[in-house]
Design a protein around this nucleic acid. Structure first.
Lengths: 323, 323
DNA sequence: TTGTACGCGTTATCAC
DNA sequence: GTGATAACGCGTACAA
């Protein structure tokens, strides 16, 4: 790959002059400028970004640490991040943790080696001290996406609020029994139960299916089939909703008549199902744009940057499965 | 971020000695070694990968150019590539072309700036001269994934063969009318028709629905509903299959009794549908492993590298939708 | 075993 | 307007 010195040699000028030309410095003889530019074009010159960064210049590299990019949700997020970053002039170094905390640390070592200007991360767990210790001397700004980590810059969807919206949706559709499928204790469940409570429905009347247990969908479907009431079910993500629809069908429970199902994430296939799956959409593009924006702000104008703790809101996409 | 020179200063040795310690060169006084290592650990030293590469050392960066990572198929591919690359000691610079050829060229400029050691690419179109001109002086080895580009290293699934397998599957299930949904002229269609032909079924008897036309699924479903025969339908990807299942349902066509549906890509949701969607699975992991392997071989042992043009084969995953 | 000197490609600071 | 020159962090001769 051709270098500035090489162009200088070929055009009989000094290397700094080449640098001036290529960086648009006006104080260069027009003739020389043309000669140099022509030579650079001819040889497809591209500046060595690595050498630049040796002089303390930014690398224009952003590390993006995800748990699992094969998950459609994170894949979409990655795409939005990549697009926002590209627009801001940054390239993406991608890393999957596969939900293994050790991988996360490994990632940081590697990203430091490449002197990335900043990192956007989706931690495996928000409560890991690796992420929470805000005082840790990091070599670059870090923005957390999809999770709230107090004391750090973060953009995330308010899952408790989402749970609450889900409850309101199911209540308004006339369901009179309720169930939640997900991980007991998670924010979506808390919000869901709280909203039911506010509407005079005791939390005990809401059955929770722990999706980490095999056969949870079968159990929940069976339970739904055996009851008189119409059950409104909120699942923690769309794949779980699909599995549940499948089991409900097997148990002869009609959707949305006997049971309503509301998923989460609004994966692309939702709209093609029979019945179409109602779901909740996270504002992915906004999340990505805010994350990149905050990161770039921290990088380029650190003094003007202010801490960011930005909850965004999911929205209900009502289709057939909730009537 | 601490540098070797800085460690040298703190430990009262010269910078090259630090270099020797950190690179495991044995000819260093054990005491000095300990002192240096301790200092390095204390300050979380990480070598500057960029400075290394300035001396002609590899960057250990691989460019990965995809059309659209938000597509579940490419997301999975990206994950497998990332895993293989990580194992081989490389990191990933990710870029989406969004199916825009100009973006592809842009990508190459950027990747050259970062002096990536090699690139794995999924071109928008295999016939673009940008990809086919094998003589183009590239600055790094390039491996094409998912598409065959004659004269270049490539790993891909044989789509014509896949079409043929699809036909055999549907024939064996007793369907006696056939349809293909996809882009007219694509390899899968060619293979599908050829295999039907070999089994005494004239290509004219196979209806092709052009998925680029709005309402194709409705048309195909209507046509299927109006016929006596049981129709075996092969779709170019699973999302199309989902849309079709939806329309077939609307037209009262029972699956798999009156129509069989075989998708392509085997996206994760397939198994949760009612009926479960039969599909064809591409060997993603193998494709990624071969691509990375070939690339690493070209990078690290260029003399031993031989051209690669490797067709892989998709396999039918028979579920309920084909009976 | 250790230190000195140099070069990689670039930017920046000087003189001229 | 232009060309020396130093500096960035590192590896590698070579010298001691």
């Amino acid at each position: 790959m051709i270098t500035m010195s090489e162009i200088a040699r070929l055009t009989n000028v000094s290397q700094p002059t080449v640098s001036r030309v290529l960086n648009g410095n006006p104080s260069v003889n027009p003739e020389v400028r043309e000669r140099v530019l022509a030579c650079a074009r001819e040889h497809h010159y591209q500046p060595n970004a690595l050498a630049k960064s040796l002089q303390g210049q930014p690398t224009h590299l952003l590390g993006v640490l995800l748990t699992d990019i094969s998950n459609g949700f994170f894949a979409e997020l990655a795409k939005e991040i990549e697009m926002s970053a590209k627009q801001a002039g940054y390239s993406i170094l991608l890393w999957n943790s596969n939900y293994e905390p050790e991988r996360e640390r490994e990632c940081f070592d590697v990203l430091r080696r490449y002197r990335v200007d900043g990192v956007i991360a989706v931690p495996c767990r928000a409560d890991d001290e690796f992420w929470t210790r805000g005082t840790d001397a990091l070599d670059f700004p870090l923005v957390i996406a999809t999770l709230r980590v107090p004391g750090r810059d973060c953009v995330y969807v308010d899952h408790a609020m989402a749970g609450s919206q889900a409850a309101r949706c199911l209540i308004s559709r006339g369901y009179d029994a309720f169930a939640f499928a997900g991980t007991p204790g998670e924010d979506k469940q808390r919000g869901f139960l709280a909203e039911l409570s506010r509407n005079g429905i005791a939390p005990e009347r809401c059955f929770t299916a722990d999706v980490s247990r095999d056969g949870w969908a079968d159990v929940l479907a069976g339970r739904t089939a055996s009851r008189e009431e119409r059950t409104g079910i909120f699942t923690s993500n769309d794949l779980q909703a699909l599995e549940l629809l499948n089991r409900l069908h097997a148990h002869g429970v009609t959707v949305p008549q006997r049971a309503g199902v509301l998923g989460f994430d609004d994966i692309p296939v939702s709209r093609y199902l029979t019945p179409n799956l109602s779901s909740m959409r996270q504002p992915l593009r906004e999340m990505a744009a805010h994350a990149v924006g905050q990161l770039v702000c921290r990088i380029e104008t650190p003094d003007r940057a202010v801490p960011l703790d930005l909850p965004l809101y999911a929205s209900v996409i009502a289709r057939e499965s909730t009537g």
